[in-house]
Design a protein around this nucleic acid. Structure first.
Lengths: 346, 346
DNA sequence: TTGTACGCGTTATCAA
DNA sequence: TTGATAACGCGTACAA
């Protein structure tokens, strides 16, 4: 029996010696189509032939060639995700949620890192489109309007993540960054702080929205001026938080509370306060954003906004899969909210 | 001129209305092959025709179909990466290095999350093989011997990451986890600590190697017994570090130093000490592993082992690309070492 | 330098 | 339920 041999060496073909569906079919004594069906739609094949095919697959160590399937079926089972950063726990949590939603349905993730650049995001999307993704998950809010347009023209479903966009057509899952920034500032005001500073990094769309919420709350409280904002384009790190604390105290020494646009900056600011002997919150209140795991454990524990990152990823992926399968979503935008975690630091 | 129209609706084909290479060729008045060459090997096409093709591409908004290319050329430009976790900064740093090495060479990453499970790793590898990856990057050390074997059989190059394997054939980039664990313990001994505990989580291969190094150092110092080890399978978190500190002090109240198998655990342990009024390092020294960014900033700053994560990713990807392109590597295993960061906490 | 012919491995389609 | 045939869109091989 040379059933076991793949059809290598025959003719002048450029066969790569890989086991193909035809090899499986030959081994099982059925046609390629039956072998194909036995794997992708087993219920349409008689139990007897199905078993023979399964045995052939096992015997030959057959692996589906997805390039061929994608070419023939125009479906890739690939979903493209564009995230701004791998080193930000926020996005890796989102990624975990996406994976958990997608894995059981057999979708593969194609992840690209935009490094917070809208231009990069657009370039990467085009590169990814070459892989015929069935759908796209977008996290940048800046360029995503144009991208959504482009994707719609190509008939590729897309879901935006983290913030809620203005365009009501756009599928999206997240929460209002603006409102969250507002809520945190209101909290500080309620606790009696009046000279509240804001430090922001990265300057991505989400940070800017939070800053707007901060300004609005101050305005409403009649505390518009003077400005105590410090915004830099560098990536958020603990070290940057430590540095920005120093710079803030230099330009606004009367500051009594500091709203950090994310937890990493807050940690750095608090550590720096400790080194300088500035008591938190007695001398200076400090709060963060995102509620990363250390926030609950630091001393003082860190007041922050808990964001439903995992759930955002999970729900966004679920929504995307519905769109791919042609289900008309009942809601196009899902607001998952956020929670103020009032702790010791502010 | 109906040049502009893709060849849709003609015949009974299942054309998807997508712009194809043939459309570009027709628009430019050249053959498909010339169009193909103009994109993938521009220098082999006359400047005139090249320009016409480029214009046609722009005019039609052509996108390469990588499934078709992979099928025709047996090369996918895809590289599969299997990592144990997205939420561990160690692996996201590695990922960043991989990306920086791969992006300029036009490779796409297919990332899968094994969740620290060897079984999952094997399953995911098979799923990924369906995408015809040109190469594979492996981070688990447990199952990777079998996997390397399987990959070699299929002719797919693979590089192991993080530790240095026993099999000298296996391509790998990393450092000796065992030796690093040994070095850290020696440091504690030199500082005069004698009743050194070890807490470990996740229990992946790397943690176990570090624990072995710890034991060896104690043995050599004649301090083999009693054991002050606490190993749990849960994922490493700050919260777990806090909990394990409590459990360690319960079973070994005489402990004078604590070697945490990674920084997250160390942070939790230190925070817990602060809450209990245990001075670090005066009453209890605590050290970590990896040198994540907060380690330098905490109070006390954390003694730990700095690991070249980004470089490991970068070098591993570089080595893999060489292997893919048929370059015989001069060294099959690259040891990037590690650095002891002696700070305040131990 | 450019073009022709065909195959890559799978699934859609239609007939039996 | 099963099979024959023809795409899918591109690149290899070879000829001109």
């Amino acid at each position: 029996m040379n059933d076991m041999m793949p059809s290598a060496g025959s003719g002048k073909g450029r066969s790569r010696g890989r086991v193909t569906l035809a090899d499986v079919a030959r081994h099982a004594g059925v046609s390629s189509m039956t072998a194909s069906r036995a794997m992708s739609a087993p219920e349409t094949v008689s139990p007897e032939l199905r078993l023979r095919v399964e045995q052939a697959v096992a015997a030959l160590g057959y692996l589906l060639n997805r390039a061929a399937r994608a070419l023939a079926s125009a479906r890739s089972s690939v979903i493209t995700v564009l995230i701004p950063s791998f080193s930000n726990a926020v996005f890796t949590d989102v990624l975990a949620g996406i994976q958990d939603a997608l894995d059981p349905r057999g979708y593969q993730l194609l992840i690209s890192n935009t490094r917070y650049s809208d231009a990069e995001e657009e370039k990467l999307l085009n590169a990814n489109l070459q892989y015929n993704p069935d759908g796209v998950l977008l996290t940048g809010m800046g360029s995503s309007e144009g991208l959504h347009h482009q994707l719609r023209a190509r008939g590729i479903p897309a879901v935006s993540i983290m913030d809620l966009p203005d365009d009501p057509e756009q599928l999206a899952v997240g929460f209002s960054q603006h409102e969250a920034g507002y809520t945190m500032t209101r909290h500080l005001l309620k606790r009696g702080y009046r000279r509240i500073g804001f430090i922001g990094a990265q300057l991505d769309a989400r940070t800017l929205k939070r800053a707007e919420g901060y300004r609005q709350a101050l305005q409403e409280a009649g505390l518009g001026a003077p400005s105590r904002e410090l915004m830099v384009a560098d990536p958020s790190t603990v070290a940057l938080g430590a540095e920005l604390l120093g710079r803030m105290l230099a330009i606004a020494p009367d500051c009594d509370a500091l709203f950090c646009c994310n937890d990493d900056l807050a940690y750095g600011a608090i550590y720096q306060c400790q080194r300088r002997g500035i008591e938190v919150p007695a001398k200076l209140a400090v709060c963060g954003f995102n509620d990363l795991p250390p926030s609950a454990w630091m001393n003082p524990s860190v007041t922050t906004i808990a964001t439903p990152r995992y759930r955002i990823g999970f729900e966004a992926a679920t929504l995307l899969m519905q769109a791919i399968e042609g289900v008309e979503p009942t809601v196009r935008q899902i607001d998952l909210g956020y929670t103020l975690m009032a702790r010791e630091s502010a």
